[in-house]
Amino acid sequence: MTTWLYDGSFDGFLSAVFDLYWQKKTDVTIRKEQDHVQGLFENVIFMPTIMANADRVWVGLSRKLSEEHLQQLFCCYLSELAGEEDHMVGFIRHVFSSEKDITGDFGNKYILHVAQTARKVLREKHRMEAFVRFQLTKDNIYYSLVAPDYNVLPLIAKHFKERYADQYWIIYDERRRFGIYYNLEKVETIRLQFNTEYDPHYHTTGNVWAPEEELYQQLWNTYFKEANIVGRKNPRLQLQHMPRRYWKYLTEMRLD
C-alpha cells in the first residue's frame, strides 16, 4: 500500500495524477500532505508539484471535457472532503480510458459521485451568494464574514465582482483564514490580521462602521420581521432552507 502526498494545491493533485500514468501505478492513493495521518505499514512518498506535468493533465482533460465538467472536477477538489481524491482519480481514469463522452454515464460510481459532490459544492456557492451580508466600514469598504462548508470563495468571486462593480468589498472566510478583496479593478486574495480587542463578529460597537450602517441594519431587521406571516408559521421549513450554522453571519438572524 503506497500513499502519495501532494502539497494541497489543485496543481499538486494534477501533478500526482501525471505520475500515476507516467509510472503506471494503480495501487496508489493520493492524499493532501496536511491531512495525512501516518499508518503503521504504510509506504508514504511526498510528490513535489511540477507545474508542467499538472498542465499536461489539465490540457488532456480539457480536450475531453466541457467547461461544465472541468468545473465539476475542480469543485470536488474545493470540497476538501476526506478521500475525495480517490473519486477524482477514478473519474479521470474513466475519462481517459474511453473514446466517447462518458460524462453522462451515471451508472458509473465515479461519474455519479463527482456530479453529486460538485452539486453539493455548487449549492454551497449559491448559499454564499445569498447569505453574504455586507457591512459598510468608515473607509467605504463593504465587509462580510463567512464560514462556508466548502472552500467556495474561488467560485463566488466572479458573481460578486460582476454585481458590485462600483463598490469596494471584502468577503472573508473565517474558517480558512483568507478572503477576497475587490478594489474596483480586480479581485485579490488577502489575509487579515485582527487585533484582539476588535470582535470580528462585527456589531455596531467601536468606530469601525459608517454612520448610516446601524440605520440600514435596523431597517432590514424591521423589514424581515414584518414580511413574516404569523398564520403560516413554519420554522421547520425556515431551517431547511437556512440551516442554523449560517445564522450568526446573518444580520437579521443574529440575536442581539
Binding site: A130, D166, I229, R232, N234, Q238, L250
Partner: peptide
C-alpha cells in the same frame, strides 16, 4: 460598471422568514 445585475438562470433567495417563505 454600475450596480447590480439580474441573472437569466437561478434567482437568489437571500433569507427565509419564520413562515419558511423566501
Amino acid at each position: 460598471k454600475g450596480l447590480g445585475n439580474a441573472h437569466p438562470g437561478m434567482g437568489i433567495c437571500h433569507s427565509y422568514t419564520a413562515d419558511g417563505r423566501c
